[in-house]
């Protein structure tokens, strides 16, 4: 860890809380915290999948350095990702959201394709979770939630005999972070369900805190009624 980075992390956290507080006072916004569901689930009788492939989570954990620069910590990132991989199937099975299917080993051709789609998921999910919250995403996207990753992972779905996959993006900088999970239809790439959670990882047991936050995302899965309500109001 860099000299002074602990103080920078505290400063970052304090600055974040203060700025968010001031922003919320000034803008007077009520934030919608998800879930977000694809419009076809409401408009064309589509249903959520019964079996879902658990893709490897993409985890970036790092520390904040001088001038708020971020330094990724590969070891911590891998540890957190491994912890999620070890337990997410069990957690999801216990909740009964769907039947989780373990991801197969990927070959050298499939890995870059999955990495490209994971990167796209992070970008798309960032825009999608602004739906209903103003900012850079127009408000009509809440009603017309039709984000997609395209059909680039369809072959993986055919090979595994599943119609959908779970994609997870975790970003933690200086102990503060977000977890975003999305259920993606593999043949079309449609983002069927999306949820996010905030993270504050205490140093002593960050893995447990991450799992608790991840489990919290599924508390009201799929949340069709709640989303239908906000969608109708939008």
């Amino acid at each position: 860890m860099e000299v002074g980075s602990e103080n920078m992390e505290r400063l970052r956290l304090l600055a974040g809380v203060l700025v968010l507080f001031v922003a919320s006072c000034v803008s007077g916004k009520h934030y919608y915290n998800g879930p977000w569901l694809h419009r076809s689930l409401f408009e064309s009788g589509r249903t959520l999948p019964a079996r879902v492939l658990l893709l490897p989570p993409h985890v970036v954990a790092g520390t904040s350095g001088e001038h708020f620069s971020c330094t990724a910590d590969a070891e911590v990132s891998r540890r957190l990702a491994d912890e999620l991989v070890r337990h997410m199937g069990e957690l999801l099975a216990a909740r009964g959201c769907f039947e989780p299917v373990a991801a197969p080993a990927l070959d050298d051709e499939q890995r870059p394709n999955l990495a490209a789609h994971s990167q796209l998921f992070a970008i798309v999910a960032r825009a999608a979770q602004r739906a209903g919250n103003g900012g850079t995403t127009p408000s009509f996207k809440l009603r017309e939630f039709d984000y997609t990753l395209g059909p680039g992972l369809a072959e993986l779905g055919r090979r595994c005999g599943v119609e959908a996959a779970l994609m997870i993006e975790v970003v933690v900088i200086g102990g503060l972070g977000t977890v975003v999970a999305g259920v993606v239809d593999l043949s079309s790439g449609d983002l069927l369900w999306l949820q996010r959670g905030g993270l504050y990882l205490r140093k002593e047991e960050p893995e447990r805190k991450l799992l608790t936050t991840f489990e919290g995302l599924w508390q009201d899965y799929p949340g069709l009624k709640a989303f239908a309500r906000v969608r109708g109001e939008s």
């Binding site: 970052r12 968010l20 922003a23 970036v60 971020c70 602004r130 900012g135 850079t136 993006e169 503060l176």
Partner: peptide
Amino acid sequence: GPPSFDDSLMAFFFPIDGW
């Protein structure tokens, strides 16, 4: 796109890699 205030904060605190 030009960022909104909230999006700038998100990008600042939780940057994501992407091209």
